[in-house]
Design a binder for these strands. Structure first.
Lengths: 132, 132
DNA sequence: CTTTTTGCAAAACCTTTGCACAACC
DNA sequence: GGTTGTGCAAAGGTTTTGCAAAAAG
């Protein structure tokens, strides 16, 4: 396990992510950080997002659209994906203890240690659009 | 919406999928169906898997490993992904009404119509390996 | 005969990686 | 100075697509 050294690029990536609550993709992060680091490469963005996720400082969301999304808020909360505009957002909803209760449980010979749940539907903006 | 015509390849793809309970990837389907259709192309496999999924005859699982898995069993049931061997399997577990109860609900301005839940952990085989 | 599907190959897309150089400590 | 991170470009892996030929109805 090599030591981790500071890098201004990594700090900028994390700082940007902390200002956003819409769970941007690597490409969005890249284009944003490029304002401060015009020569930063997409590879560096990916490397740092992966490193930060491995360190547990951010989380990686795989909501099923084929692209990874990233979230600087690592506290437990649910995510919502709009079927209409594909936007990913946080769900202001209490945690569901039923799901967590399954952790450490043996179901069918399998030891459950975690789960991932995403909710799908129509977001507020798209519902207004539909109302027209 | 164009009409749908029968194709022997599509039938073979669906038939193969119905014999398997391990949620194969497109590539696995391709290699299997190739025994009967040596000249079938991967593109055809992808087109048919997508069509069958759109028709609701099979379901597409995106468990977060970057590859799509397919399941001919479209009845509601949960899936389990082994962190160790990456195998995807069915979970013999009753449905969790808490999750379904959220359908049609308005949470935070968002209309929930569905959800996806995957469980992660160690499967039976890998637990035996670990016991050594 | 018209429409849909196929095979093939190329492209698209997202992500990872090798390497020489720069940054960090 | 030794180690880690970066930029660049190339490669990797999965999935989609354009097109002429084949199959379906």
């Amino acid at each position: 396990m090599p030591a981790i050294k500071y890098s201004r690029q990594r700090e900028a990536i994390k700082n940007f992510l902390m200002t956003r609550h819409d769970h941007p993709t690597a490409d969005v992060v890249y284009n944003a950080v490029r304002h401060d680091f015009p020569h930063i490469s997409l590879g560096t963005v990916y490397r740092n997002l992966t490193l930060l996720a491995d360190l547990g400082e951010i989380s990686r969301l795989r909501v099923g659209d084929g692209v990874d999304h990233f979230d600087a808020d690592t506290s437990p909360h649910y995510h919502f994906v709009c079927n209409c505009c594909q936007q990913v957002s946080d769900l202001e909803m209490d945690s569901l203890p039923v799901l967590d209760a399954l952790n450490e449980m043996d179901v069918d010979g399998k030891l459950i240690v975690g789960h991932v749940t995403y909710f799908y539907g129509t977001c507020g903006d798209c519902r207004k659009e539909e109302a027209h």
